[in-house]
Amino acid sequence: MGANEEKGGTCGTIFLKYLLFTFNFLFWLAGGVVMGVGVWTLVEKSEYISLLPSKTYAASAYILVLAGAIVMVTGVLGCCATFKEQRRLLRVYFVLLLCIFLLEVLSGVLAYIYYQQLSVELKHSLRETMVKKYEQAEQDHVTRAVDKLQQEFKCCGSNRSDNWADSLWIRSARAEGRAVPDSCCKSPTAGCGARDHPSNIYRVEGGCASKLENLILDHLKIIGMVGVAIASIQVTGMVFTCCLYRSLNADTL
């Protein structure tokens, strides 16, 4: 008997087929959501990734994009396997579900590990980045990221505005007497960073490090929640697949 031989099937088998088809449609939609979250993380905050002490955050987002793409392909494969009652395809489908599940778990573990390390690492690394890389040769992406961070979150310096006193750029002639970059100003204009006064410069408790930390933590929570939600759905799908596979085997006896 061929693997793709059509079966009449019992009521239980027919019920499982439609249940698994519905699951696969929802699974396909979920794949789009997962991939969308990963792409959004990489595109929306791509400049800030250059300010982070490690690539773990970016790796988590890339894993989500990969998992989302595989989920969408797997959803289509699951629909074909379900309605054609091909047990071989069901086995392939189950393996793909398991692989996606492991990818989601890996993404969640990376997000959790980075969540624990972020606070201590970020405060030190952001200060080093601002001091040594801002307005330096071949570091335009860092300069843009720092300026955007300070303007978007209305902050100045890693921990406080006087962190800029140690900046290689501030201490050079190219700074033209500025105490802080112009992006620290409440109303940015050329050269406004020369006047280091609370009425002109943002003074935020914890500086930009605390703002960036909160941003990344919020994103990590989203990545974690999406990963857990999809992983839970995948477990359900694997159970349905096993049940249908067993039911098809029983029908052939």
Rank of each mutant, 00 (worst) to 15 (best):
A3Y: 09
A3R: 13
N4M: 07
K7M: 13
G9I: 03
G12A: 14
I14N: 14
F25R: 07
A30L: 13
G32D: 08
V37D: 03
W40I: 14
W40Q: 09
L42F: 11
S46W: 12
Y48K: 05
Y57I: 11
A59N: 14
L66P: 01
T74Q: 03
T82D: 10
R87V: 14
L90K: 07
R91S: 09
V92I: 04
V92N: 02
V105E: 02
G108W: 02
L110W: 09
S119F: 08
V120R: 04
V120T: 15
S125C: 04
R127L: 06
E135F: 07
E138T: 11
A145D: 00
D147T: 09
L149N: 05
Q150Y: 03
G157T: 13
A165T: 11
S167E: 01
L168W: 05
L168G: 12
W169C: 10
R171M: 13
R171Y: 07
R171D: 11
R178A: 12
S183P: 03
C184Q: 03
C185Y: 10
K186L: 02
S199D: 15
G206C: 02
G206N: 13
G206W: 04
N214E: 14
L215P: 06
I222L: 12
G224S: 05
S232R: 02
I233Q: 10
M238A: 07
N249I: 13
D251K: 08
